[in-house]
Nucleic acid binder design. Structure first.
Length: 1039
RNA sequence: GCGGGUGUGGUGAAAUUGGUAGACACGCUAGACUUAGGAUCUAGUGCUUCACGGCAUGGGGGUUCGAGUCCCUUCACCCGCACCA
């Protein structure tokens, strides 16, 4: 009986669905294990083989954990709000909810393309997801709770004394009794106010003040505005100065926007990384993004140029130990003090410099780092320790947005300051003992300080501490920690996102009651901004809140709303809102009374294993940690980190295929006698005639300037030209003209992608199949083939994408080889974290292995199902049966059990596949068909190849799914060797193998080895200097 | 510039702790079988040499009886951050 994988797989997928085999049981007595994949954005393009890689690994692990007796939560859902669906809606008018549904469930899009649907594609691979727990972030029953969490964030402030978020009511209480004098909060810069002030203020004034403290707050901030997308973007959505999606330019714009006070959590987000089992690189990216700098803020008083000013410049420095090395100061050109302190003589120069700096974009400023520019303000500051006057400059290497926008320049210890001082001829003081600073600054923190008063002779690290103490003692500053992390902009001027549960009375935001949530996204006529530049929701008529009826109501355009009716927020939430807490919703996906029930979150806790791409390092992964910590602070969840262990799967790259084309512009014809070049018109005429497509080796030869190939091609061109231009006879390219190639041999060939589905084994192009296409990419081209008449393509590894014709869908492979083969093969490909190119050829090896496994169970007549039921007799002590073959089979099985368990436990998903292959190869060689060997083998194989395992498991007479079988125990007794084959080395070089009893003593082994006749050859009559014997390992003889 | 990562046959890779480098596959070469197929089976396959042997884990150096693995140094590629004071 043949291995009918298609039938088997369909059968078991149906069985699992019907029996809800993978349903996780809340509050079960078994220990819990939570395995989570980063949920996908359902795009119309569907899945390619790269997408399921991580899902297969997590599925293997989830199934493995079930076999080990865990209650496993392994859910899947969709991050279904997002830009692509909205862009598509703008183009086609199709509601994003409709396209999203089609992308998930399958169907036909507006252009008539068949969309397979994520769910259908996933189902074919045999994942053990608990689909009853599916979530979609764009579903109102889901985003109701995203809105609810937003409300919590709005109604909270960050108390630095308790170091956690607290209800805003506790803050209001303090304001009522003491004003804000004793409040230690993470907030915007706020003036002090008293209880009287607070109580006197109007409701509106109080609300405006509270926005300075709320964790979700509204403020006028400089935001990254992307005109092409018509929305603002967070810092992590911008790469190299352009939008991550679409690559559009981004500019700075002052807008009233919602933000999240994530900076309040900077320290906890940083320190929390310590205990996470994440890759060092992801942790480092987050550390970098948070960008903690420890140092001091120091005030330098401004020396009044005419005696009247009393100002001071505050700087932040990480090197207070170098304060005696300060020889000037630099302010950012935008620094508010600049205009105040600039002397009349310097005014013109400074203003010119400010103007020049403001005209440069952020990007230009960054890219132009080699040019040292600046201007002297004419003002001086007083050095707080030496009393010296130091010049105050402005320069655009100082950023207004970081620290205080001003630096104390220490040219001997900072290269930029050194460059600046050198360029403008400013004094450079050396405050490092025995360090040469004539060629550049000494930036290491290991010098000993000199010429620095009370800091003399201290190593830098101690000097830092002492300097801070002294600075604080003199009241000129204090120790301070600075972060690079900025508050996260939370508004998007987009339609396809969560609406805010917010309406405005006189520009003051008010929240909608919990019981009236969700606020459902309204219908609009077009998914574009309004004429007057409001976000798309500005088009919705029914987008007003009636405080009396507690409902959204319609107000005609340009009409004043009736009393008690107010305009709702027109922005929507960013993509990361829904994905910041989805892992919690899986625990309790249908709960309409809570975002997650207490008992369920207490049972399931946080995610034990999270698998997904590394590209979310500063976005999703940081925000999810932030929200988790916040929800923990308010007592909603019992943990403050979402994902305990994470593995980032590598990208599967496409293996693009290329055809080669003669670059017709790259040769020219020259009249032999006259040396007259025929003009461009003639060149153009070549392109009217046949094009030439070259098989790989011919293209290569042409690039290598192989003479005979050049001649061959000239001949072909000549013939082809004449065929198409019979009137020219042979006087154009025949006797009188000769074809020459241009010098740059690389450009002789143009490469074009060809669909990998038409490329066979050994890069052979299937020309026959291509011809059947209505749009044959070879067209009428003349083909120059290999000697054997074949056309060979070249290959290149690139990102998998439709435009490169290198997309491999899992569906095709499941059809041809089966889901089990695909699963094993994707794992077999290499370490999960590594990037690797897709290669379909190798899949036959894995497929062959499953067929071989199938045959082990079909040793009956005509390959019918048959296994040997006679039990293996073991001795009372559990030692192996004396029969050699059985001993071998038992050893093979137990060796494999051990390896599979150890490998999966250390997340090495590729090596178990080889172990299975070895085991099946060995059992095949031993002709082993014993139930006692084959049954445990199925259990350990089930995580990788669940369908075939279920089928054979059932054939063995089991009536329950293999999913909850018990992972077999390793019996070490079977693994004990009576003999060991020693590799015998001479001077570290392995020369021969020698089989000796495993329990032989070192001395006896040495004796045996030296007595061996082969040893005599390598000893060459000499006595060995030393013999190293490592029992059960090796023998090394030193001659 | 800073931080992280990766370099092993024609290809994907293996080698948890220093102990036979290249397991397991793909591909390739022969052969068997066959109403030819992308099926199955057998043998071979790092490079080099007729051979004994020699050389091989990006390069160079070191520690060690022994190094892909540890240390130093250097090169290449990938990812992240980048006048961050």
């Amino acid at each position: 009986m043949q291995y009918q994988f298609n039938e088997i797989e369909k059968k078991w997928q149906k069985y699992w669905e019907k029996n809800k085999t993978f349903a996780a049981k809340d509050n079960d007595v078994k220990p819990k294990y939570y395995v989570l994949d980063m949920f996908p954005y359902p795009s119309g393009a569907g899945l390619h083989v790269g997408h399921p890689l991580g899902y297969i690994a997590s599925d293997v692990y989830a199934r493995f954990k079930r076999l080990q007796g865990y209650n496993v939560l392994h859910p899947m859902g969709y991050d279904s709000f997002g830009l692509p669906a909205e862009q598509y809606a703008i183009q086609t008018g199709q509601h994003p909810a409709v396209t999203t549904k089609v992308n998930i469930e399958g169907g036909v899009d507006k252009q008539g393309n068949v969309i397979p649907g994520y769910r259908n594609q996933l189902d074919k691979i045999g994942f053990s997801f608990d689909w009853d727990r599916e979530v979609r972030t764009s579903d109102p029953s889901y985003y109701k709770w995203t809105q609810w969490i937003f409300k919590q964030l709005f109604n909270s402030w960050y108390n630095k004394d308790t170091d956690k978020a607290e209800q805003i009511d506790t803050l209001i209480e303090q304001f009522k009794t003491n004003g804000n004098t004793n409040v230690n909060a993470e907030s915007a810069d706020v003036e002090h106010f008293s209880a009287e002030d607070w109580n006197r203020w109007s409701e509106e004034e109080q609300q405006k003040m509270l926005l300075n403290y709320r964790i979700a707050f509204l403020s006028d901030t400089w935001v990254n505005w992307c005109p092409a997308l018509g929305t603002v973007l967070a810092n992590d959505e911008i790469k190299d100065g352009v939008s991550e999606r679409g690559g559009h330019p981004v500019e700075q714009k002052l807008m009233r926007q919602w933000s999240m006070r994530i900076t309040a959590y900077a320290e906890r987000l940083l320190s929390g990384l310590e205990d996470l089992d994440w890759s060092e690189s992801i942790k480092d990216i987050q550390r970098n993004w948070i960008g903690k700098s420890v140092g001091a803020s120091v005030r330098f008083t401004i020396s009044p140029p005419s005696g009247e000013s009393e100002g001071a410049i505050e700087v932040f420095t990480t090197r207070p130990d170098t304060i005696f090395g300060v020889s000037f100061m630099v302010l950012a050109p935008e620094h508010p003090l600049v205009n105040e302190i600039t002397t009349p003589e310097q005014k013109a120069e400074v203003e010119a410099y400010q103007k020049a700096a403001s005209l440069k974009s952020e990007r230009d400023r960054q890219s132009d780092i080699k040019n040292i520019t600046g201007a002297f303000t004419g003002a001086f500051a007083i050095h707080p320790f030496t009393g010296d006057k130091v010049q105050i400059w402005i320069g655009d290497y100082v950023l207004a947005s970081y620290g205080t926008g001003a630096v104390m320049a220490v040219p001997c210890g900072d290269q930029r300051d050194w460059d600046f001082a050198t360029h403008f001829g400013i004094e450079i003081k050396n405050i490092f003992k025995d360090k040469d600073i004539s060629e550049g600054a000494y930036a290491e923190k290991d010098a000993v300080i000199a010429n620095s008063g009370f800091l003399n002779d201290l190593p830098a690290k101690e000097a830092i501490k002492k300097a801070v103490v002294e600075i604080e003692k003199r009241g000129i500053g204090k120790g301070k920690t600075q972060y690079r992390l900025r508050d996260a902009v939370f508004s998007r001027q987009r339609y396809w996102g969560e609406p805010f549960p917010v309406y405005y009375k006189n520009e003051v935001p008010y929240l909608i009651d919990d019981k009236d949530l969700p606020i459902i996204l309204p219908e609009i006529d077009q998914y574009l901004p309004t004429e007057d530049g409001k976000p798309p929701l500005g088009r919705a008529k029914e987008w007003f809140w009636d405080e009396h009826s507690k409902k959204t109501v319609a107000v005609e355009q340009n009409q004043k709303p009736p009393s008690g009716v107010w305009g709702l927020e027109l922005n929507t939430m960013p993509g990361w809102a829904g994905s910041s807490w989805y892992f919690l919703r899986y625990m309790d996906p249908t709960n309409d009374g809570e975002f997650v029930a207490k008992d369920k979150v207490n049972y399931w806790q946080n995610v034990d294993l999270y698998i997904g791409g590394a590209e979310h390092a500063t976005g999703h992964l940081l925000y999810a940690r932030f929200w988790t910590k916040f929800l923990h602070d308010l007592g909603h969840i019992p943990f403050d980190e979402p994902f305990k262990k994470m593995i980032n799967q590598g990208m599967i790259q496409g293996n693009s295929a290329y055809t080669h084309w003669l670059n017709l512009v790259m040769f020219k014809a020259i009249k032999k006698d006259l040396k007259f070049e025929i003009n461009d018109l003639n060149v153009a005429q070549y392109s009217f005639m046949s094009e030439f497509s070259l098989s790989k080796s011919i293209a290569e030869k042409l690039i290598a300037e192989d003479k005979s190939t050049e001649e061959l091609i000239k001949e072909k061109i000549d013939v082809a030209y004449k065929k198409h231009h019979p009137d020219f006879k042979d006087n154009v390219l025949g006797k009188d003209y000769e074809i020459y190639f241009k010098a740059n041999s690389q450009e002789r060939i143009i490469k074009k992608h060809v669909d990998i589905n038409y490329v066979e084994v050994n890069d052979l192009l299937n020309i026959e199949e291509l011809k059947k296409l209505s749009r044959n990419p070879l067209g009428k081209a003349e083909l120059l083939l290999e000697d054997n008449g074949k056309y060979i393509c070249s290959r290149e590894v690139e990102k998998m994408s439709k435009s490169k014709f290198n997309v491999q869908t899992p569906d095709e492979l499941v059809e041809k080889f089966g889901a089990d083969t695909l699963r094993c093969y994707e794992m077999f490909l290499g370490p999960l974290e590594q990037h690797k190119p897709w290669d379909t050829q190798g899949i036959t090896g894995v497929h062959g292995f499953l067929k071989k496994l199938w045959r082990l169970f079909h040793t009956g007549e005509n390959e019918s199902f048959y296994v040997d039921e006679t039990p293996i007799l073991a001795s009372a002590d559990g030692s192996p049966h004396p029969s050699g073959e059985l001993e071998g089979a038992l050893k093979s099985l137990h060796k494999t059990i051990k390896k599979i368990k150890e490998d999966i436990e250390r997340f090495s998903f590729n090596t178990p596949v080889s172990a299975f292959m070895i085991c099946v190869n060995e059992l095949t060689a031993l002709k082993c068909n014993k139930r006692e060997i084959l049954e445990p083998l199925l259990i350990i194989l089930a995580p990788y190849a669940p369908h075939i395992a279920e089928e054979l498991w059932a054939k063995l007479g089991n009536t329950e799914s293999i999913t909850y079988a018990v992972f077999p125990k390793v019996n070490e007794a079977y693994l004990v060797e009576s003999n060991h084959k020693y590799p015998v080395s001479f001077n570290g070089k392995m020369r021969f193998m020698l089989e000796l009893p495993a329990d032989m003593s070192k001395e006896a082994i040495e004796k045996e080895v030296l007595a061996n006749e082969q040893s005599q050859k390598y000893l060459e009559g000499k006595t060995p200097k030393k013999v190293i014997v490592i029992p059960q390992k090796i023998v090394n003889v030193v001659v």
